[in-house]
């Protein structure tokens, strides 16, 4: 459980530190005119970004706990390291490219070059779909070589981790699809731009999660 504990400790420490900083010198019993206390307000109103950050914390907790379980289960006698399909390297590269493409789209969107958003979004969608298809093929290759989910706990964890990671990407694809439809509809440029910004963060996060998962599978 050390992994889960450390990750959670870092997240909690960040949050608690922030809360304490907000509250440390406060003297709440003193009434003040609004303007004065308003200037101390801790936030710029960006609710979707805050909600996404909170969701990333939830997802971090989720993946960290599976990895904790992985490390605990690994120590038991029946663990046989997985022979990874070589395809995973290719998939990783595709996901990196998807992340890069999203970052490029975001930069384009933020700097206001709206005409280039559409190809950016399409490219990202193609790359991300390619990653998902690649993962499914990797599953099939494993099954074809007789490495089923039940064959060994290392297989079970591989299928579980890639499965839930893929589901998270699918969730991101839903938002991506909405942004793309909007971008092609030509309405709501600000909303599209905001969506792209948030998606970029989410894509980078899922890339990071995948790199950690892949690294762990390779090294054990």
């Amino acid at each position: 459980m050390e992994i889960g504990l450390i990750v959670l400790a870092i997240m909690l420490a960040t949050l608690l530190g922030w809360l304490l900083r907000q509250s440390f010198n406060a003297q709440p019993w003193i009434a003040e005119p609004v303007e004065e206390s308003a200037s101390q307000a801790p936030f710029n109103a960006r609710p979707k970004l805050v909600a996404l950050t909170a969701f990333l914390a939830v997802a971090t907790s989720f993946f960290a706990l599976i990895l904790s379980a992985y490390s605990l289960r690994m120590e038991l006698g029946d663990w046989i390291p997985l022979t990874e399909p070589q395809l995973l390297w290719f998939n990783t590269a595709v996901l990196v490219l998807a992340s890069v493409a999203f970052q490029w789209t975001r930069n384009v969107a933020v700097s206001g070059r709206a005409s280039q958003i559409k190809p950016g979004l399409l490219l990202t969608g193609v790359l991300t779909s390619a990653f998902l298809v690649g993962q499914l093929i990797a599953w099939q290759q494993l099954n074809a070589s007789g490495q089923y989910i039940t064959s060994n706990p290392s297989n079970a964890f591989f299928f579980l981790l890639t499965g839930v990671h893929g589901l998270h990407i699918l969730g991101g694809m839903y938002v991506w699809a909405r942004a793309t439809v909007r971008a092609f509809g030509g309405r709501d440029a600000a909303a599209v731009s905001h969506s792209v910004e948030l998606c970029t963060i989410y894509w980078h996060f899922l890339l990071l999660v995948w790199l950690i998962i892949f690294g762990l599978i390779l090294s054990t």
């Binding site: 809360l19 907000q22 509250s23 406060a26 709440p28 003040e32 609004v34 206390s37 308003a38 101390q40 307000a41 801790p42 936030f43 109103a45 960006r46 609710p47 805050v50 909600a51 909170a54």
Partner: peptide, 14 residues
């Protein structure tokens, strides 16, 4: 998100 972002004017955390 509501607690962090939608408080009225003057409603500081404390």
């Amino acid at each position: 998100t509501t607690v962090l972002q939608a408080r009225c004017r003057g409603m500081t955390l404390m």
